[in-house]
Structures are given as C-alpha cells and as structure tokens.
C-alpha cells in the first residue's frame, strides 16, 4: 500500500502548466487598451480640475478637442513665468491661436459631424476667471459653442 502510493507521487509531473499564461496576459492587455487612452500630448501646465457633482460624460474622443489652462510646470517656470497660460496640443499658446487650433481639429472630423464637436476646457481650479473668460469669448467668436468644463466627481463625504 505504502509502496504503491509513493510510486504514484514520483510519477506526477512537477510544476504548473504555463500554457494559458499568454492568454491571461493578452486579456489584461486588451482590457488596458480599451479603458485607457494614448497620451497624445505632454502637459506643460499644471492642471488640477475642480470637483463637481453634475457631470456629463464626453462620449466620442475624436469629437473632442482639449484646451488646457494652468500655471506652467516647474520645468517651464524659468522661461514662461508663473502666470496662467494656455496649452493647445503640445505647446503653449495665446488666446488668438485658438481658432487655428480648432480649425485644424475640424479637418480631422467628417463634415456631417462638425456640429457635435465639443471643446473640453481643462482648467486648473486656482486660475482666475480672466483668462478663462478670454478663452470663452474667443470660442464664442469662432462659433464653437459646445463646451465642457472638465471636472472630477466629488467624493460623497459632504452630502446633506
């Protein structure tokens, strides 16, 4: 009895089969590919969006253009100072460069969907309204009226 038992044990192959490991990793990979987005531009301004509760989701990424407003990062402080700046794409810009930026984005969108383009304003919470107002005025002059003020969901601690 004992002898037989021991023999069986030595025969069984050691180690776990790793044949399914690639599949598991691939599933993980696809998951991340779906839920994340390619980092298209390096942020040169500090943007910490404020909290809000009444949020809407931005559906289609291809119909959204991003306008960043905030103070320059530590790396760019020496050159650009500490005043809030606008970032379009991957470089600093002035307010009057917004129409060109929007026009460039428009060429990538089919004409039938031009009306659905949304501008996402990712503005730092500590920035004063002056520069935001200038951006808004410029957007209105250009006719880009659909705007989304980017914000984070407020944690539910201060309800009631």
């Amino acid at each position: 009895m004992v002898k037989k038992f021991q023999k069986k044990r030595s025969e069984s192959s050691p180690g776990i089969s790793t044949a399914s490991l690639p599949d598991i990793i691939f599933i993980l990979l696809f998951f991340f590919m779906v839920v994340t987005q390619m980092r298209d531009s390096e942020l040169k301004v500090k943007v910490k969006t404020p909290f809000a509760t009444e949020l809407n989701k931005l559906e289609e990424k291809s119909l959204v253009n991003y306008i960043y407003v905030g103070r320059p990062n530590d790396r760019y402080k020496d050159v650009y100072g500490t005043k809030p700046r606008i970032q379009l794409g991957d470089k600093f810009a002035e307010v009057n460069e917004i129409p060109l930026f929007l026009e460039r984005h428009k060429t990538k969108v089919p004409e039938s969907r031009h009306g659905q383009i949304t501008s996402s304003l990712r503005v730092d919470g500590q920035v004063t309204m002056g520069i935001v107002q200038d951006v808004k005025t410029q957007l209105r002059k250009y006719g880009q009226l659909k705007v989304n003020y980017s914000a984070k969901k407020r944690p539910d601690e201060d309800k009631g």
Partner: peptide, 11 residues
C-alpha cells in the same frame, strides 16, 4: 473625461 457641459451663447 467628465465635466459640466454648457452651451455658450453665440457672439
């Protein structure tokens, strides 16, 4: 990608 969507008035 969340935020408050607003419609600006035309200029």
């Amino acid at each position: 990608d969340k935020g408050i969507t607003v419609k600006l008035p035309p200029w």
